[in-house]
Design a protein around this nucleic acid. Sequence first.
DNA 1: TTGCATTAATCAATCGTTTGATTAATTTTG
DNA 2: CAAAATTAATCAAACGATTGATTAATGCAA
Lengths: 215, 215
Amino acid sequence: MEKDKIDKKDHILDVAEKVFSDKGFDGASTRLISSEAGVNMAMLNYYFGSKEGLFLAIFDRKISSFQDILQNIGNDDTIGSWDKMDRYIELYSERVVNNNCFQKLLYQEMSINRRSDLSDKLRDILMKNVSELFKILQEGIDNGEFKKDTDMQMVIATMYGTKNFIVNTPLMSSALLGYDIQDDKNIEDKLKPHLKSFFKSLLKTYLLNDHEHAN
Amino acid sequence: MEKDKIDKKDHILDVAEKVFSDKGFDGASTRLISSEAGVNMAMLNYYFGSKEGLFLAIFDRKISSFQDILQNIGNDDTIGSWDKMDRYIELYSERVVNNNCFQKLLYQEMSINRRSDLSDKLRDILMKNVSELFKILQEGIDNGEFKKDTDMQMVIATMYGTKNFIVNTPLMSSALLGYDIQDDKNIEDKLKPHLKSFFKSLLKTYLLNDHEHAN
DNA sequence: TTGCATTAATCAATCGTTTGATTAATTTTG
DNA sequence: CAAAATTAATCAAACGATTGATTAATGCAA
């Protein structure tokens, strides 16, 4: 059955995503991945051609669902710029703290510069997501809701960086925050609300003009 | 001569630091490192025992100079909390944007889950640096200079995360900031001042109580 | 039976490491 | 001081292990 095959490939991709994010590309052997996935080693090559093919397939799978999630917030004319920002923070914090092992993989790959074609591709995709945030910020500045001297680039770097730091160095951030951020329950109950409320509070004071502070 | 030996070991460590940070631990072969350093392969084992020994030696060398740089800012009684924060931002931005290939290595290692003993060690060292920042923040809150509801943990995650994001994903951050952050001149002329002024501006609005805003 | 899925066995290549030999430097000895 | 003895540094070559990949044989459903 075609369905079974897809499920199997998907299962392999799930496992590979996890193992790659734990060990890195070079540290994750095909033998380990296949045994973790409960399939014969040759199946990886049979399905994905090569180890690199498997690796790329992980990204291909995600990329399709990766795009438009954060898009089209900026196109809503009925709400103000801060409310858009608020919504972006909500969605971003939600999305990103899930798939955290893919996020880890993504930034590992962007940090090491091996497959430069892939890196470029990932950069472009991320920049596309970033552009939505740009739009929101620019609009807020133009309509006077945000401060004129807002450093948009750095605001973006701050959001992405802070999230990455927490997700990608769990040992460090768990020690810092005082709870295990690898635990799913803690992620849901503590980390997500924590991240959201901090981002809102931080950016509200930074972005909003004084006359808006009352809100 | 003893000096030559130290210089040689130091040279190997320099090269290894660069290669490891480029390729990751598993991606960097001992053959590549030794050929880049212009020494025989066996010398790596002769000097450092093993590949892992070489890797650890990189950290040992840095760690000694790593410690006290950011320390003792908090102990100065003659300046206010924000001024201490200001000074921390200055030093942190300076230090960190230099040795950026070590920083890359450091967070690569903390991201991957391999030698947990090393990871723990690195976490402890970083937490020690963090504690100085904690001290400054706590003091500022206690003396009323900073807001009572300051999220200290997240402020720290933001500073470390934002810097990491910029340094560790140069492809992304160069596209975002609009200049090549791998270029030494750009680092000095643009990135450092940029980072400093943003951190100050961002944290000033977030940390300071309203009656301090005039400053 | 035919075609795809799956397996164990095997491949060459590369890995980190070790070896034994050789050279250079240092120390000891007469 | 000079010769001998010892130690340290360096090298090419080879080691066993592991890597990603391939093969040929088998299983199995249509």
